[in-house]
Design a protein around this nucleic acid. Sequence first.
DNA 1: CGCTGTTTAACTGCTC
DNA 2: GAGCAGTTAAACAGCG
Length: 567
Amino acid sequence: MMLSSPPSKYQTFQQSFTNGMNGSVPGSYSMNPMAIGGPSTLHSGMNGGYGSGMLNGMNAAAGMNSHPTHHSQMSVGGSAAYPGINQGVGLSPNMALSMCINRRTEKTYRRNYTHAKPPYSYISLITMALQSSQHKMMTLSEIYQWIMDLFPFYRQNQQRWQNSIRHSLSFNDCFVKVPRSPDKPGKGSYWSLHPDAGNMFENGCYLRRQKRFKCKKMKFSGDSTDMDNNDNSSSEEMHQQQSPSGSLSPSKEVTSPSSPHPHTSSYNDISDVMDDKAALTQQQSSVEQNSRKELADQSSNAEASPNERMLHHQQNIYSHLHQQNADSNLPHPEQGRLSAVNNHHQNTEVENIQHSNHVRTSSPVDANQHSNSITTNTRERQNYYHEPLLETKSDPLSYPSHHSFYLSQLQAAGAHQVQHYPGLSHHGASHPLAHSFTHPFSISSLMNAGGEMQSSKEMRAYQDAMQQYSYGTTAQDVHHDNISPQQISTLENATASTPDSGDVSTSIPSSSSNTHSPENLQQQYYQMHYNMESANPAVSTHDGLGSLADAYYQGCVQQHNSNAAIA
DNA sequence: CGCTGTTTAACTGCTC
DNA sequence: GAGCAGTTAAACAGCG
């Protein structure tokens, strides 16, 4: 195959261009995709704010050429800076000090990297998008939109990255396709996460997976019950599975989430389920039965084949769609209550968590799904927090993918909040979450960043990055070349805790209050957003993730500069 | 025709 | 260095 031989196959942030797009983003655009149900709720407000056409003229080369300083400096250690996720995590605590030394060049970096490529892989982006979705599934175009909404970087060169997105969706088993309905025409299918994909991004870190999720391939022998559990089955077997249309196609497509016989399903797509009012009625009338069934499913889920669990997962999705339709006239608290009833099988401590999450979950779907698979056994709970969920096909402690999101949400609440739950706090200081690390680039960190930071080294590194972000710009007039990192930290804390505008209704709760209470998390997010924008109004990106990415880049650059200075 | 989806290939960078 | 994860490009088919 011929390749066009671009200067670099990997488009690092060297290649990112200077902004010029900020003005195109509606100023009111401030979002928390995880807390308010994803960008789908924002599309109406976003459309027209930016267009692909106005940005098509920009390319990587232009971005580099227009900033030769950039290029020259980054070329010293450029390749290590971008992929060096771990380096970014391990930002030196002295970074804030060295950042003062290089403050001038940082301004250049911060200006130029405002829309640098986010440090998330495409798989991460897709996962985030899907997990932020109310129904845990999206169409391709919705995924596109979600990404563009959050990351200005991806508003250019759409053909390039969107091709990669499509490739990722098709290539990776962690993404499964849910067909559309014939009576709900539209291009493309829905995409969802494979339930066995589990926590691909541990600790909520959406940077790089530890291991690629590979679904055990079902053996297509005509026996619908013989779907998998065949470790010797190859991907070729799967790829040659006969599709309903008779063509050879991959079997990632989910056919019948509601049928006990997947290959002889009566439902072929989402609307078949959604439109089946009889099924809906039956489901509503058998909530209690379903609860018991879910419990049974949950216990047997671990023994179920991956594809059966896939179907179970999809069945949950469809069921939630039903349930949401049924509950659509109820306010969210009522929806949450119904969901809680639906999941009556959970014990008290889990219900506490569940209720807590209802406050900020966008729909009962989240809590419902979450609670469906939460095990209450202490040992399982410990494993739930400790063990990677990738290699869990035979692991009885496996959980569907939405649990990673749930865990992120829980982690976002921090260890303090966890201790509010008796069942989770009796581990005391040894509880995994008591010293768990919420990755600075996790979505949960977004929700936590405006509030009380955890005092881990990693969070310190994150703070360094954030300080750099802030002091490279707003505090630029403050000559603190000789200020110690501690002093800088103090300054930053003072800035963060002193909203100076009455326009912002949110304020960081005092430490005496329940800073990590779920209802505060969103406020904290917006507060963080506000602080960042206040610190640097000229480069406000209106997307927290992008800002985090920017902070990360700053950290990389700073570390590089620091290392170069030492050398 | 454009979008969606699949597949292949080449490549970079990281981990072991 | 091998293997793996991820990125990018491209060709192709199907569909609305």
